[in-house]
Amino acid sequence: MLSLLFALLDRFLVPAPDQARVGWLRGVSYAHRGLHGAGVPENSPSAFALAIERGMGIECDVQRTADGQAVVFHDWDLDRLTAETGPVIERRADALAKIQLTGSSDCIPTLRTFLDSVAGRAPLLIELKSKREIRVAPLCLAVRRGLEGYRGPVAVMSFDPRVCRWFGRHSPHVVHGLVVTEEGKRTLLATLKLHFAFWQARPQFLAWDVRDLPSKFAAAHRKRGFPVLTWTVRSAELAARAADCADGPIAEGAGVGA
């Protein structure tokens, strides 16, 4: 009875997306943080160029800078991926653009620089990095400004349902999705949290943790017309699971081309 109630609420609160707007997401293999590896750092211009050469889509991460711009970088701090230290959000975009990524001559790209380099040659997934204690509007605004005038296929997504909801309200022309991990939890409390996040986000697609597939929730909404992508596909075994349960893998390492 409870599952039926959830299904009814899902349909009422989160309408199925317009297939003409989201169909391009399907049937694409996305390079997780670009096609990175030895000598090619993640989220680097070189990794993005290799993904384009391979005919793949690109998944990348963005954060806000001290001067309200969006840069392509995964970690909250600079320590792991550069010779610098400290939070990304405390640096200006022009300063970050001069910081080299470890093991490469590439520097941290702004979102606008990244988009200009891709120029519509690959489908893009842009993950907005967020924390509960940080307001999402400034980051969402920075990303929206970066996307202005861009003509290629692009979608934004986040674990934070507030991000997805913001784009649905303030920039509905941008395709927006919810990133989900169940962390193996299938309890009633976990199910409630999942549905509440879905209702708050009102996404147009889902990006699901491959470790949690198959998932009844993902399968039900995939049947309704929501594209389901899956991350992070790192092996042939996970690639086979992605092919069975999702519409496109977000892959790296041995999962690319498996």
Rank of each mutant, 00 (worst) to 15 (best):
W76Q: 14
A66G: 07
R33I: 13
T230P: 02
T191S: 01
V28D: 04
E90S: 15
V118T: 02
I99R: 01
R54A: 15
A254S: 14
K98P: 09
G86I: 10
Q63F: 05
V163L: 02
V40S: 04
A83D: 15
L13C: 14
H170R: 13
R224I: 03
L141S: 14
R222C: 03
F73R: 06
A51I: 06
K193Y: 04
I89P: 00
L111S: 04
S46M: 07
M56T: 13
A246S: 15
L35G: 13
D244Y: 05
L101G: 01
A197W: 03
A220R: 14
L35M: 09
M157I: 12
V71G: 07
R162C: 08
G177Y: 03
Q100F: 03
I250H: 04
D244R: 15
L50T: 11
F159R: 04
S104D: 03
D61T: 10
Q100E: 14
P227T: 07
E127T: 11
G120V: 00
A16P: 11
V88L: 05
G55H: 07
V62A: 08
E59S: 09
L9K: 00
L189H: 01
H176Q: 13
V28L: 07
T181F: 01
V163C: 07
W76A: 15
A246L: 06
R132S: 12
G257P: 07
E84D: 11
R145H: 14
R92W: 07
L5G: 06
A70Y: 02
F6T: 00
A16H: 08
G248Y: 01
W166C: 09
F159S: 03
G57L: 07
Q19P: 14
G86L: 10
R144H: 14
A7W: 10
V256H: 01
A83N: 13
D247W: 06
E252W: 05
S46I: 02
V233T: 07
H173L: 12
P161E: 06
C164M: 09
L125Y: 01
S117M: 10
L111D: 02
G34C: 08
E127S: 08
V233P: 02
